[in-house]
Nucleic acid binder design. Structure first.
Lengths: 137, 137
DNA sequence: ATTACTGCAAAGGATTTGCATGTGA
DNA sequence: TCACATGCAAATCCTTTGCAGTAAT
């Protein structure tokens, strides 16, 4: 685990497992999901280790934290990007940063703020669910 | 409280107080802040009343719910709009919907999703804090 | 008179903390 | 060795629920 060493973190089994889980999942995961996942291999790991590890990996910039619908989610940090998530079936895909570049610049220019649009989750209804749900909900 | 009547809700003191607090605050408020606020007038109101009232006002469309930084926040429902919030001092201002219309259309066109950009909070650093913090944090 | 809303107490769940022990550098 | 990370238990916080009583319509 080069990343851990490089960032000055110790290479321990929990850290490796958590990083692997996030690296391979290619989706956001909540602390709870991560806990279940890691427990498949290491059944007695306590929640506190998950939470503490997530916080330190996040501080080190190895993973990123997002908040969506009241849930805290983590994922492997790649380049800045965004997510498009279906609120009905949960299907998730990523959106390139480029979609937001214009708005970002426009807002900065007009407000003087320096904005953080590094990671946004946009929710909506995917084509499938639009069809099956029609006008419902 | 015309809004309550119109929406078929009963006009009770908690509902009136919560609505007033949100209507006058002009910012997002968490259930906890609302609880403190309402308790200045009605000191023994229990949290459950706050939570239940918020949920029913939200279902009736009188107030809207957002999630930001892991916190659930409520505010008086005006037309769809967005917020620009300073992550350092908390200063908050609103952004007209128009900023996002283009991205919204673009994403819908290219993904087939029908997206929900009714209420987004964008975080950043306001001009003041950029000056005082410089490159810090 | 009905039935929605409230108050209270208790349950539930997620997250955090203290502290002793273990382990990677 | 020594600081950092872990395991475990308990504490805390936020939110929800059950139920009996109250008040709005």
């Amino acid at each position: 685990m080069v990343e851990l060493k490089t960032s000055g973190q110790r290479v321990t089994s929990s850290r490796v497992m958590i990083l692997c889980a996030l690296k391979h999942s290619a989706r956001h995961m909540t602390p709870g999901e991560l806990l279940d996942e890691v427990r498949r291999v290491h059944p007695h790991i306590p929640p506190s280790t998950i939470y503490r590890t997530l916080a330190s990996l996040r501080d080190a910039g190895l993973i990123s934290e997002t908040h969506r619908g009241g849930e805290t989610e983590y994922e492997w940090s790649d380049k800045p990007h965004h997510h498009l998530v279906c609120r009905s079936c949960g299907y998730e895909r990523s959106l390139p940063q480029t979609y937001f570049n214009q708005v970002e610049k426009k807002i900065e220019a007009e407000s003087g703020f320096r904005i953080d649009l590094t990671h946004v989750a946009v929710t909506g209804l995917c084509p499938e669910c639009q069809r099956s749900q029609g006008a419902a909900r």
